[in-house]
Design a protein around this nucleic acid. Structure first.
Length: 597
DNA sequence: AACCGCTAATTCCG
DNA sequence: CGGAATTAGCGGTT
């Protein structure tokens, strides 16, 4: 639905596929601290040669002879490939921090009482009176307060805040207003204007100074609407590129699975679990990063927390017959993540050997993925193959209190998710040789709920029909795409933001959906308000230095970057917001240039 | 494993 | 703008 309005330019059909990839698409979460400046290299891939593209989709034979001539030369330069070697998906690596997880343990996570003051979208237009009240509330807040209040939103405990919470909700509702995303021509009554603008930039004193006079605010707002929707258009992935990438990816994945089945005992039965932004339909710009978890079902396991955050565990098998027992020194000792990953990696490498167009990137410390890269029409695409264990028993204690989606998706849905298995990936942080309780860090596993993240994103409406043909269209995923895009552009601009993985954006959205639970608070027509509210959420977390893992409330995803970095990123975001997102505009211009040339 | 029907997304076209 | 066509992905069935 809705996706179809055809884009602007009358581009010739598949040619050049649009893409103009803009550099950095998203550098996914490059995790390692040590990872140098992400990659400049992306620019190299301007696909000059793409002319032939449209029809290209012929089925190329699997290996050898790569799809197109140009590929060869490209491959040579592989050495530069983007630092993807490191790519560690954030999903599996929420916290790469080297330091202790906790700063902000207080986060109890969300949820709570969201229902209250309902107003259906329709009426929004007339809610003026309320707006004013809340405006005042908002604007008077200090930044700190706002950050804090956010947290409190999730921390159910405080009842005292109920008031402010309701104020917030109403705010949002009022925000929806009738704005058309594309702008301009829409008429908006003056009062609305002022209200909106004021709430759009609630905590930005500088705003007045830098932006023009009040009477221009209307244009500003229209301009923001326009820039956001135009940006979103540009983030769509090209159908042709998608088809080409999917073909290549699916082929290699199937080959790996078959190889494991035929040539190994331990990895004989693996179930592929396609996760990450591509499979969640929130991938932006290019279909160039894929994540597939290969999960090994295990019967009963003993898990013991490793460290404080609730994310890492040492694992041992309860039953005696598993071929995985060979990764345990004794019958009761922990299952060695490092040994198992090492063997898995070896097998994947063996399989991929015959596919000369694929390259296996270097092992990165603590990273659970075996990252493969190749080129499709001169564009590098990477595939993270992640070994994991699938455990079909109740979720670990630290995850009991997370996933507070009752107010948004309902208690039944939550129960359903919690009955699903959970996954363990061979991931650790810090030095692998550190030992607690006789367990080496490199042998621990981190819990993963990627399957639930994916399921939630696909089924994200409070109403069952959200975004379906018969339902109303929402902008939740669009907001996430924009936030991811903004984050990746800022990272590109300042490499000190390396450690702000896009998983933070996803987590922020999930929390936001728990705070603003109604579909009417996410109308597609309110994209810019919703997005700016999401930015406010994100800035709040940054300023507080606390963003609880959605599934593990005690784990703070912002414990790794220090507070200074967090503040600095928050400042950059506010600056973008207050100036109408110049970073997006620049992006558009540069794309246009590429396209023109 | 092959097939089917469905959904979400992109793009074409009127 | 919105319908139609196309396609990847997915779940269910045999």
């Amino acid at each position: 639905m809705t996706g179809r309005g055809r884009p602007l330019k009358a581009k010739s059909p598949g040619s050049k596929c649009a893409k103009s990839k803009t550099k950095s698409e998203d550098i996914k979460q490059v995790s390692l601290p040590t990872c140098p400046s992400k990659d400049f290299k992306e620019e190299k891939q301007i696909r000059t040669t793409k002319e032939q593209k449209p029809k290209q989709r012929e089925q190329k034979k699997p290996n050898h002879t790569d799809e197109n001539p140009s590929v060869h030369s490209k491959q040579e330069e592989k050495t530069t490939k983007h630092c993807t070697e490191e790519i560690n998906k954030q999903q599996r690596t929420p916290t790469d921090n080297t330091k202790a997880p906790v700063r902000g343990t207080r986060a109890k996570t969300c949820a709570a009482s969201t229902k209250s003051t309902e107003q259906s979208a329709e009426e929004i237009t007339k809610t003026k009176p309320k707006d004013t009240t809340k405006d005042s509330i908002k604007t008077t807040k200090t930044k700190k307060d706002s950050g804090r209040s956010k947290l409190s939103e999730q921390c159910v405990e405080e009842i005292t805040k109920a008031q402010s919470e309701t104020a917030k909700y109403t705010t949002k509702a009022s925000m929806k207003k009738t704005q058309a995303k594309t702008c301009a021509s829409k008429a908006i009554s003056p009062e609305n204007l002022t209200e909106e603008t004021s709430k759009m930039q609630p905590e930005t004193p500088e705003y007045t100074t830098k932006v023009c006079a009040p009477q221009h605010r209307y244009e500003d707002k229209a301009a923001v609407d326009s820039i956001l929707s135009t940006t979103l258009e540009k983030l769509k992935i090209n159908k042709n590129d998608r088809a080409n990438a999917a073909e290549v990816i699916n082929e290699i994945i199937m080959s790996i699975i078959r190889h494991l089945e035929n040539n190994t005992q331990c990895f004989k039965v693996v179930e592929p679990l396609r996760t990450g932004s591509y499979y969640e339909n929130v991938k932006i710009s290019n279909p160039d990063e894929f994540d597939v978890m290969l999960s090994i079902p295990v019967d009963r396991v003993n898990i013991k927390p490793f460290g404080d955050g609730g994310a890492f565990y040492s694992v041992s098998l309860k039953r005696g017959n598993s071929p995985l027992k060979k990764f345990q020194e004794t019958d009761t000792s922990p299952l060695s993540a490092s040994k198992m990953l090492e063997e898995f990696r070896k097998e994947v490498k063996k399989c991929v050997e015959v596919f000369t167009e694929w390259e296996v990137t270097k092992k990165k410390k603590g990273c659970p993925a075996v990252t493969l890269t190749t080129k499709v029409q001169s564009v590098t695409i990477s595939l993270d193959v992640v070994l994991c264990l699938m455990v079909k028993s109740s979720w670990p204690p630290f995850a009991q209190e997370g996933l507070k989606i009752e107010g948004w998706l309902g208690t039944k849905v939550r129960q359903e998710y919690k009955r699903k298995p959970y996954y363990l990936v061979p991931k650790y942080e810090g030095r692998g040789t550190v030992e607690y309780d006789g367990v080496l860090a490199r042998d621990v596993w981190r819990v993963s709920f990627s399957h639930v993240e994916k399921a939630i994103l696909k089924n994200h409406g409070s109403e069952k029909t959200c975004c379906e043909r018969v339902g109303k269209r929402c902008c939740r995923k669009d907001c996430l795409k924009l936030l991811k895009h903004l984050l990746s552009l800022l990272k590109e601009k300042d490499s000190s933001f390396d450690k702000f993985y896009s998983y933070l954006a996803k987590t922020t959205l999930l929390h936001a959906c728990c705070s603003r639970t109604r579909d009417s608070e996410w109308r597609a027509s309110s994209l810019s308000q919703c997005f700016q509210q999401l930015l406010e959420d994100f800035v709040g977390y940054l300023e507080e230095g606390v963003l609880p893992n959605f599934f593990i409330p005690d784990q703070n995803l912002l414990s790794c970057p220090d507070q200074k970095r967090c503040n600095s990123l928050a400042r950059c975001i506010k600056e973008e917001r207050d100036n109408g997102f110049p970073i997006f505009k620049h992006q558009l211009h540069s794309k246009e240039k590429v396209r023109a040339s």
